[in-house]
């Protein structure tokens, strides 16, 4: 069974712009948030859903979960009609909204989990086992008795993820799960999701602004732009399509002239008399390690960082490629 299936899915909103001038018939403009999107996601896939703010990501998710009714087109989630069969669907999907909480802010984390177990009618033993599993995997033991409002952002996000996974859904949708998290928390959350998928074969769909999330979690990427599906394929293919390149920034111990001749790289610029240099490379053609070793032959590298391509930038390039 296909987990997510949409056919020419479209959603329009009527926007009333109220001007001060009293023109006859207030101007009503039709905004197409999701435009003719057809896609299939099979069980066990891990899919990144990216696009600029307002591109239509949240609207799609709302239609997949039955919160919004499509203007036209068809949508099936877990083989169900999300609006008509919302309650059946709810026990098979878990959703993490980065901005809205499933937990009760004045209750300890453990009590929130217990209420959610009752809401999903989990049998007592199975519920407790699943909770223990999640607590262990997400390392939540230390704050299980802490009221949700006192949690740090990283802790709260782990608790939110656990809350969405408590009923062992076959599809998990994560809307900006790593937004605002520090590097370590991001890393932990990604590792957990990889492991969870390995153990239970869960299908993942996540929206994000963080290329790192996509690189580490997803083998397939969907790009939505102005409501239209602009790309559907692998991350590597995406980089190829738009020529999205990663950038290696090296700090050297001595000044060097511009490193124009490192194989498979493009020199982007130098600062501080050549003490810091920026080299763009395509992950398809070479690796960061190979670039680094080539640089090290010229001078000692004191520090380095790798910049991921910016999602907004990737989307912009896809959009211009389309026109």
């Amino acid at each position: 069974m296909t987990i997510i299936e949409t056919e020419r899915l479209t959603r329009q909103f009527v926007r009333r712009s109220r001007g001060l001038r009293r023109s006859p018939g207030r101007s009503r403009s039709l905004l197409t948030a999701v435009d003719d999107v057809t896609l299939r996601i099979e069980p066990g896939e891990s899919v990144g859903y990216i696009g600029a703010n307002g591109a239509g990501k949240s609207t799609t998710i709302k239609m997949l979960t039955g919160i919004l009714v499509p203007t036209s087109g068809r949508v099936r989630t877990c083989g169900l009609d999300p609006v008509r069969q919302r309650r059946l669907l709810a026990s098979r999907v878990g959703v993490v909204f980065g901005q809205r909480s499933q937990l009760w802010w004045d209750l300890p984390v453990r009590e929130s989990f217990e209420i959610l177990a009752a809401i999903h009618r989990l049998p007592a033993r199975a519920g407790a086992m699943r909770q223990d599993e999640l607590v262990e995997q997400l390392e939540m033991g230390a704050f299980l008795e802490t009221p949700v409002r006192q949690l740090s952002l990283g802790q709260r996000m782990r608790a939110e993820v656990a809350a969405a996974l408590l009923h062992s859904p076959e599809l998990v949708i994560l809307d900006e799960p790593t937004i605002g998290l520090d590097l370590l928390s991001k890393q932990r959350l990604r590792e957990f999701l990889v492991a969870e998928r390995g153990r239970h074969g869960t299908t993942l769909l996540l929206t994000t602004h963080d290329m790192g999330d996509i690189a580490r979690l997803c083998e397939r990427v969907l790009v939505i732009d102005h409501g239209r599906l602009a790309y559907d394929g692998s991350l590597a293919g995406l980089s190829r399509t738009v020529g999205a390149q990663r950038v290696l920034v090296v700090d050297l111990t001595e000044s060097l002239p511009d490193l124009n001749d490192i194989p498979d790289t493009r020199h982007l610029g130098s600062e501080g008399n050549g003490l810091r240099q920026r080299l763009a490379f395509d992950a398809e053609q070479t690796t960061a390690a190979r670039v680094l070793s080539a640089v090290s032959k010229r001078a000692e590298v004191r520090d380095l960082s790798v910049e991921e391509p910016d999602i907004e930038d990737v989307v912009r390039r896809i959009y211009s490629a389309h026109r």
Partner: peptide
């Protein structure tokens, strides 16, 4: 607060 959207994700009316 988005609480209503959260209600949509639970199997009760």
């Amino acid at each position: 607060a988005g609480t209503l959207d959260v209600f949509y994700l639970r199997p009760q009316p």
